[in-house]
Design a protein around this nucleic acid. Structure first.
Length: 726
DNA sequence: GAGCACTGC
């Protein structure tokens, strides 16, 4: 809109926003002093008591163009006469920014039962960036300061105040709030946005809110979703459904005639074909992982270069989460200009993981290439392993991907599979995360919220009984719940940590091993992505740098070394660069550590360290690790392979490990199933420690027959003898 | 001797 001013005469003195009529005329010249008013006073913003700004009216005009505005009255009517409403609106309907504002208009903000704070409207988002950016936008639309009437709350950052009446927050954050405020009494209306994504937190909130609504007739719920699976929501919540059209340009879909045997090759060919045959417009290609993406980028660049100046220049940009923000910014750069004036147009080609499906939006994309695959988390409760598998996406995902071609103009989507395969092979929806995860942490959270009967908890999609059983069993071994399934004092403290139960356990008991400072650092390092940078052009130097941090007893201790070195070097970015350490990651770890320290303090858990020169310094740390991770132990068999204890799965040390030998017993942080079955982040421990620290788990009376069992039997006998000698 | 979809507390 630039400096152009809108005629505001008919807007003046209007407070009821719904009655404002749209003004389309060209308006006044920009020589009018900014903020000056023609023809009288302005409407007063009832939130701030100040007159609305120029900008408010400018945005209002655009807001009124959004599809949801055409159904505002309809929405308000349904909202007023029902406790729960389901709203389906596709991309571009404006639901995320407008519905919460409609809701604010429809209710009187009351004070909370304790009379000191106002009650609020909450709107959840699955991602932090969305919560932040949407709330900023809405604050602007409502002409208030962010953090005052409109705010957001995400991990590490609460940007809200006593004045806040509308708060955007991550679904995980609302779940955390429910732990201390089970009836969510500070809210008058809760809006669950992007419900179709079925994140773990949103799914738990579904079940929880269904109960809360029964106990709080004054609470209202709005569930917003982008897909028609909303009918499932409708019957689950027994609520009316309202549909709002989206606003996207048409996207033409193409399928292959025959199935493609090599999707990577097919994707590259398709991109090159688009570049040579189609009209100008940027391309977005979906692939599955970092290595594949880098590989594809090189191949595309090479192929196009070979074609010479018959075709326009291309800018090929990779996109995945572990890329630095600076590199991620490249996706927003414009396509290159023609090599010479009048020559063939340039094109930007973004090669991306799933991150471009939901988390990042790139305008200007006209062509989408979709091989129909993604790395997805799967969970096997039998061996308690979560792993990433390349698997077919759902129809809903394919739809979302194709929509990325129609944001700014009509587009085309090339699906590298047959139409028949789309119809017959793809699941309608992505499996909810709840059904693909280890639920130990979720079960602990539910227990903390007083939900004891998990089998009869009203999940929208109930997890497999075996998954729930495995979770309960693990929590019981950790001492978080007793044999009757009730939360213990220890479990209550554990539930307060934003960590997996094994890690919370390790942290809570670490003062007993006189090493909580070190366990805090290790936990923080394990909670962030890999901190080691390994650029293709300097792999050897990077490996050497990493080796300098190496600790012969294991990767956990190597991580501790890195953290200590980072602090000793005053968090210096140059030091990080020279040592191939990702500074962003270390900063994040420091942030996590501070949060964990605050929680430790809340429960009077002692911060302590063993004397660094004592021979027990590292031994104590490793023992504390055993206290949390005794269920993730592997034993070296005579064959030279490791077997996981009890589950008896053959596993290999991940080649990234820094041990200088193969110890008989190791503890590991995660199991990664790729080409082979690897255990990653591994530390050497002693067999004696596991029977001393976790005898209940290492009770040999119900232990599968294996080499480890025989070794442990001997260790128990040795302990017995020692006992007699004492 | 290999890899890290993406979120979230």
């Amino acid at each position: 809109m630039g400096m152009e001013r809108k005629r505001k005469v008919s807007l003046l003195d209007v407070v009821d926003k719904s009655k404002i009529t749209k003004i389309n005329s060209g308006g006044f010249s920009s020589s009018v002093a900014s903020g000056s008013i023609i023809g009288g006073g302005r409407g007063i913003n009832s939130w701030t008591g100040r007159p609305y700004s120029q900008r408010y009216y400018e945005i209002l005009v655009k807001r009124r163009d959004l599809p949801v505005w055409h159904q505002k009255e309809e929405f308000l009517q349904v909202f007023k006469s029902n406790q729960t409403v389901i709203l389906v609106g596709e991309t571009g309907s404006g639901k995320t920014t407008q519905i919460p504002q409609f809701v604010l208009e429809a209710i009187d903000i009351k004070t909370t039962p304790n009379k000191r704070k106002k009650m609020m409207v909450a709107c959840t988002q699955p991602r932090r960036v969305a919560a932040m950016s949407v709330s900023r936008r809405v604050a602007e639309e409502m002409d208030v300061t962010i953090g005052e009437e409109v705010g957001y709350s995400i991990r590490f950052e609460d940007c809200s105040s006593a004045r806040t009446v509308l708060k955007y927050l991550t679904d995980g954050m609302l779940l955390r709030e429910a732990m201390t405020d089970p009836l969510l009494e500070r809210y008058e209306v809760i809006i669950l946005d992007e419900a179709h994504e079925r994140t773990l937190a949103t799914d738990v909130l579904f079940g929880l809110l269904k109960q809360v609504l029964k106990n709080r007739p004054d609470l209202k719920l709005v569930v917003m979703s982008a897909t028609l699976e909303a009918e499932k929501f409708q019957s689950y919540f027994d609520a009316p459904l309202m549909k709002v059209p989206g606003r996207l340009h048409p996207v033409e879909i193409f399928y292959t005639e025959e199935p493609e045997s090599d999707y990577l090759d097919a994707a590259i060919r398709t991109v090159v074909q688009i570049h040579t045959r189609e009209t100008p417009g940027d391309v977005l290609v979906f692939l599955t992982g970092e290595e594949e993406i880098e590989d594809a980028c090189r191949k595309i660049t090479k192929k196009v270069a070979k074609m010479g100046d018959k075709v326009g220049p291309v800018k090929v940009v990779p996109l995945y989460s572990s890329l630095s923000p600076a590199m991620q910014q490249k996706i927003f750069e414009p396509a290159p200009p023609p090599v010479k004036e009048g020559g063939p147009a340039g094109r930007k080609i973004v090669v991306s993981t799933n991150i471009a499906e939901t988390s990042l939006t790139i305008d200007g994309i006209v062509y989408v290439v979709d091989p129909g695959l993604a790395k997805q988390k799967v969970y096997n409760p039998r061996v308690r392993v979560e792993s990433l598998l390349v698997s077919p996406i759902s129809k809903a995902s394919a739809h979302q991907r194709s929509g990325r071609a129609g944001r700014t103009q009509p587009g085309k989507c090339f699906r590298l599979y047959t139409e028949k395969s789309f119809q017959n092979d793809l699941q309608p929806q992505t499996y909810p995360e709840m059904l693909r995860s280890n639920l130990a942490n979720t079960v602990l959270t539910l227990k903390k919220m007083g939900i004891n009967d998990l089998v009869h908890f009203d999940f929208m999609d109930a997890p497999a009984p075996e998954t729930l059983m495995r979770a309960l069993e693990a929590l019981n071994y950790l001492g978080a719940i007793d044999d009757d399934g009730n939360l213990t004092k220890l479990g209550e403290i554990m539930s307060e940590f934003p960590l997996d139960p094994q890690m919370s356990k390790m942290l809570v008991v670490s003062p007993e091993f006189n090493c909580s400072n070190e366990i805090l650092s290790i936990s923080a390092m394990l909670s962030v992505p890999n901190c080691f940078v390994r650029p293709r052009e300097a792999q050897k130097a990077a490996d050497e740098a990493k080796a300098r941090f190496g600790h012969i007893d294991g990767d956990h201790l190597t991580l501790l070394n890195v953290y200590h070195a980072y602090k000793q070097n005053n968090e210096d970015p140059l030091w990080c660069y020279e040592n191939f350490i990702n500074q962003r990651v270390l900063k994040a770890a420091d942030n996590v550590r501070q949060q964990l320290v605050r929680i430790m303090a809340r429960f009077n858990l002692r911060l302590c360290s063993t004397d660094f020169n004592s021979r027990d310094y590292y031994i104590n740390i490793r023992k504390a690790m055993v206290a949390g991770y005794f269920m993730q132990v592997a034993h070296l068999e005579h064959t030279g392979h490791y077997l996981t204890v009890k589950d008896n799965q053959v596993v290999h040390l991940h080649p990234s490990n820094c041990l200088d030998h193969k110890p008989e017993w190791v503890i590991y942080n995660e199991d990664v199933q790729t080409n082979s079955n690897y255990i990653r982040t591994v530390t050497y421990i002693r067999g004696e420690w596991i029977i001393d620290i976790a005898p209940h788990y290492y009770d040999l009376t119900n232990f599968p027959l294996c080499e480890a069992k025989r070794v442990l039997e001997k260790l128990y006998k040795k302990r017995e003898k020692e006992g007699r000698n004492c």
